[in-house]
Design a binder for these strands. Structure first.
Length: 557
RNA sequence: GCCCCCAUCGUCUAGAGGCCUAGGACACCGGCUUUUCAUGCCGGCGACAGGGGUUCGAAUCCCCUUGGGGGUACCA
């Protein structure tokens, strides 16, 4: 029985965290499946053994789940068309390329990487287009075995038909490729594993994928896949090539961006001798040779290493992976909403959608053709309004999730729900959960561990002359606050004392609140001051004021 | 180099020949609110890449130029 339902898939490689480009591809495939009551399949494309990263598959699945894009069939949940990991489908691929070999649609080739490089360089020198030279006679099975015995690499190449290919595309219309545009490509690598082209075609057939929504970087691959489908007698799914997500500078948004940002700053830091090469290499957990190679753009470092290096030189890494946005304090639905609008619009002015609403509104025909820049300012704005509109329980959940991925946050230690809720209430107007931390974090560090921002202390406590200085105001105010009955340390009581104090001295509230703020939080930013003091408690407040006074005096000396 | 895709405010986009003196959102600028930082509210600036056609009429159709992007692997 043939299933007539739409079947889409997302097929990432387990090389690291999920990238926003991949997330958008996954989202569109998910939306199409959901809105047609179809099936969304997750397949792991792990045919490049050298690039596979341990643990990456789990991260990928976690990121996808975090976004709310649950799949119906996949490596972990199973399904009737598995296995869903390409590494578990090797015999199936072998069966197929045997067929191609037998029917003369593919042939063995024994070129080494160096030989191929030489051919390409030669073509380049002649300003000619490199095409793999198809031999006139093809090696036999026996030849292949002999080559293997001699230690030569043995691959299988597909005979790309020398005719024009027209790719029907939902977004682009029909895209034509000249007859000699593509050459004979490798379908089986010398390690015996299939290439992407080979595996993807077989899997899409086996998994009965009806619609393939993928990035435009795959456009040139599609005629290859169609040729392969023809040779194997498969049907061709509906294709839609998505516009590419770019950085604000117009370059393709990718994982390399992090390397780029860190590399630039590290180079500066090394030049200015703010950091030593040896210690930087240590942070990156690699040898000095590897580190030098990385500096020369010869390699990439993993997210964690880049994070440590970035921290050492004091830069924020650009967010490019879903996990980065999670760690920065965005709600998944915000990222989903934003991503959906990168290349798609319903045709009206509406911009805010939940995932469910997207499932209903989404139409693949309405996907745009132009590449879109990833504007973090706009995302931030989406986040701001979403957080403002979110119901308290959602906010609490989101904050919890933020703290799970940011265990070093001073807020991570908050055990009771009411305190965390209170903090969220006090930080209303936040743009991300990170804002909650920067604004309210200081309230939850130990009174004696509180760090004072020197610039803030100088500006707020030490500026001006004797009786009018913030420091003097603070000292006088401390005495007033100390008079409050410990059991009556409430917002109202604090407010009354502080306001009376300010009025009595003919000072605006700002002149009093700021010194207080710097004293109890170490910085010029905090939630409303009375609430802040109430939450810190009387002992904490007085203790912090004493420390601030001491600190200011030592700076002043 | 070659192949392919794309082209409306700085950015994301609406616009499928007359509804366009081009709409919305973000950013930006100005103002208001304010105990800090945010938030919020009001207002403003701001685009059809250029050149040819087609048509009574073009942001919308065609061609060229220019610009941007992607691909050009035993990576996916």
């Amino acid at each position: 029985m043939t299933d007539t339902r739409v079947r889409t898939r997302f097929a990432p490689s387990p090389t690291g965290y999920l990238h926003v480009g991949g997330a958008r591809t996954a989202l569109f495939n998910y939306l199409l499946a959901r809105q047609t009551n179809g099936v969304f399949v997750l397949r792991v494309e792990d045919t490049d053994r050298s690039r596979n990263v341990a643990g990456a598959e789990q991260k990928l699945l976690d990121d996808l789940r975090w976004l709310g894009l649950q799949w119906d069939e996949g490596p972990d949940v199973g399904g009737n068309h598995g296995p869903y990991r390409q590494s578990e489908r090797l015999t199936r691929y072998e069966e197929c390329y045997r067929t191609l070999l037998d029917q003369g649609a593919a042939y063995y080739a024994f070129d080494t990487v160096d030989e191929l490089d030489a051919l390409r360089r030669d073509a380049e020198r002649r300003k000619a287009n490199f095409r793999y030279p198809r031999p006139t006679t093809f090696p036999s099975e026996r030849d292949a075995q002999r080559a293997r015995d001699e230690g030569r690499p043995v691959v299988v190449r597909f005979k790309m038909p020398a005719r024009e290919f027209r790719v029907p595309d939902v977004i682009l219309g029909e895209v034509a490729f000249e007859a000699d545009a593509l050459d004979d490509f490798v379908i089986v690598k010398s390690d015996g594993w299939p290439t992407y082209h080979c595996a993807v075609v077989i899997d899409d057939e086996d998994m009965q994928i009806t619609h393939v929504l993928r990035g435009q970087e795959h456009l040139m691959n599609t005629p290859r896949h169609m040729a392969l489908q023809e040779a194997l007698g498969y049907r061709t799914p509906v294709y839609a090539h998505l516009p590419i997500i770019l950085n604000m500078d117009g370059s393709k948004m990718g994982k390399r961006d992090k390397d780029k940002a860190v590399r630039a700053t590290i180079k500066e830091a090394l030049a200015a001798e703010r950091i030593e090469s040896a210690s930087a290499a240590q942070l990156a957990r690699c040898s000095s040779d590897e580190f030098a190679g990385w500096l020369k753009k010869k390699s990439q470092l993993d997210s964690e290493a880049l994070g440590r290096l970035g921290q050492a030189v004091g830069i924020e890494l650009p967010e490019v992976q879903v996990h980065d946005f999670r760690a920065s304090g965005y709600l998944p639905e915000v990222l989903v909403n934003f991503l959906a609008l990168l290349g798609w619009s319903a045709g009206d002015d509406r911009e805010r959608y939940t995932l469910d609403e997207l499932c209903t509104a989404f139409r693949p025909e309405r996907i745009g053709r132009t590449n879109a820049r990833f504007d973090r300012d706009k995302l931030l704005s989406f986040s701001t309004t979403a957080l403002a509109d979110a119901a308290a329980p959602r906010l609490l959940d989101g904050m919890r999730d933020y703290l799970v991925v940011n265990p070093e946050s001073p807020l991570a230690g908050i055990q009771d729900e009411s305190t965390l809720s209170k903090v969220l209430e006090l930080t209303a107007g936040m743009r991300t959960f990170r804002d909650v931390e920067t604004k309210a974090g200081a309230m939850f560090v130990d009174d004696d561990a509180l760090q004072f921002d020197t610039a803030a202390v100088r500006k707020v406590l030490l500026k001006g002359t004797a009786p009018a200085r913030g420091l003097d105001v603070l000292e006088a105010l401390r005495a007033e606050l100390a008079r409050i009955d410990a059991t009556g340390w409430t917002v109202a009581a604090i407010e009354r004392v502080v306001r009376e104090f300010a009025e009595g001295r003919g000072l605006g509230l700002g002149k009093v609140a700021q010194p207080l703020r710097v004293a109890v939080t170490g910085a010029t930013i905090s939630p409303a001051i009375f609430e802040t003091l109430a939450l810190i408690g009387m002992n904490g407040t007085l203790r912090r004021i004493d420390r601030a006074i001491e600190h200011a005096q030592s700076l002043d000396a």
